[in-house]
Simulated scan of single mutants.
Amino acid sequence: MTDHAASALLDIARRIATTVGETALEERRRGIAVEATKSSPVDVVTAVDRETEARIRAMLLDARPDDGIFGEEDETHVGTSGLNWVVDPVDGTVNLLYDIPAWAVSIAVVDGPPDPLHWHALAGVVVNPVTGEVFEAARGGGARLGARELRVNDDVELPKALIGTGFGYAAERRRTQAEVLLQVLPRVRDIRRIGSAALDLSAIAAGRLDGFYERGLNPWDHAAGALIVREAGGRVGGAGGAPESADLLVAGGPSVYDELLALVVEAGAAAG
Rank of each mutant, 00 (worst) to 15 (best):
V94H: 08
V42L: 10
V256K: 04
E172S: 06
Y213H: 09
V126Q: 01
W119R: 02
E53H: 10
W85Q: 04
R139T: 11
D154V: 12
A121F: 07
P116Y: 09
A269Y: 03
N95M: 06
G168A: 03
E179A: 13
V90Y: 00
I16M: 08
G132T: 12
E51Q: 13
G272F: 01
R148S: 08
T80M: 08
R215D: 12
V86I: 15
D190Q: 12
A203C: 06
V125N: 05
D190P: 01
G241S: 11
R173Q: 15
T2Q: 15
A13C: 15
G168L: 02
V125A: 05
D49S: 13
Q183R: 15
A270M: 08
W220Q: 04
A198D: 05
S196F: 03
P254H: 13
K160G: 15
D67M: 03
M1P: 03
L182C: 09
G238W: 01
V87F: 06
D115Y: 02
G268D: 07
A123C: 14
D221M: 06
M59V: 05
A121W: 02
A197W: 03
D221Y: 10
P116D: 11
G140I: 01
P89Y: 00
H77V: 14
G132D: 14
V229M: 04
E244T: 11
A224N: 06
G268F: 03
D200V: 03
V42P: 05
S106C: 13
I32F: 12
V184P: 01
I204E: 05
T37H: 14
